[in-house]
Simulated assay, not measured.
Amino acid sequence: MIIISQNPTEQEIIDFSLEKFRWKTEGKIDLVENLFDDELVFVHITGHITTKKEWISQLRCKSFVYNTIEPKEVSAKVYGNTAVLVGKAKFTVNGGSVYHLVYTEVYTNKNNHWKLVNLHTTSGW
């Protein structure tokens, strides 16, 4: 995997993102929920938009299950209290559907905690 970071804060954002993948595949939804900001906007590869509440509900009832997530490339850049992360990963979900995705994550620092406020995925790499 290729990791690009220029400073410790950028590495911290990358670490959060990679941990989030591990939590998703291990079913640790409470940890995922805590990382997501209450105002999270998630744009799926289909263009469908979900909120934090909707997405966490789908994960909890297992209507969407992450089997494996294999990061291929990731980089982050911090702009004050905002961080933007971009990456590529292979996602295997719902028992075998495979997606090669490019994703963008936007984090904001609220009360000295980084929260994911926007997640946008697209297909293709």
Rank of each mutant, 00 (worst) to 15 (best):
E39L: 13
V78A: 06
G47R: 08
R60D: 03
G47Q: 04
H44W: 07
V41S: 13
L40I: 14
Q58D: 15
V43H: 06
F42S: 05
I56T: 06
V32T: 03
W23E: 00
F36Y: 10
N81Q: 10
K53I: 13
F21S: 06
S75L: 01
I69H: 08
S57N: 12
F42I: 06
I49M: 14
I49G: 09
N34H: 12
W55M: 11
N34M: 12
R22G: 03
V32R: 08
N81P: 11
K52R: 15
E33L: 01
V74Q: 09
H44E: 11
Q58G: 12
W23Y: 02
E39C: 13
P71G: 09
L31R: 00
F42E: 03
V43W: 06
T82R: 05
D37Q: 01
K72Y: 06
K52G: 12
K52H: 08
E26A: 08
N67Y: 08
K72T: 12
V84F: 00
E70V: 05
S57F: 15
L40S: 06
T46H: 11
K24G: 04
V78Q: 03
E39S: 15
K77I: 10
G80E: 13
W55G: 11
L85T: 00
K62T: 02
N67W: 06
V41M: 15
L35M: 05
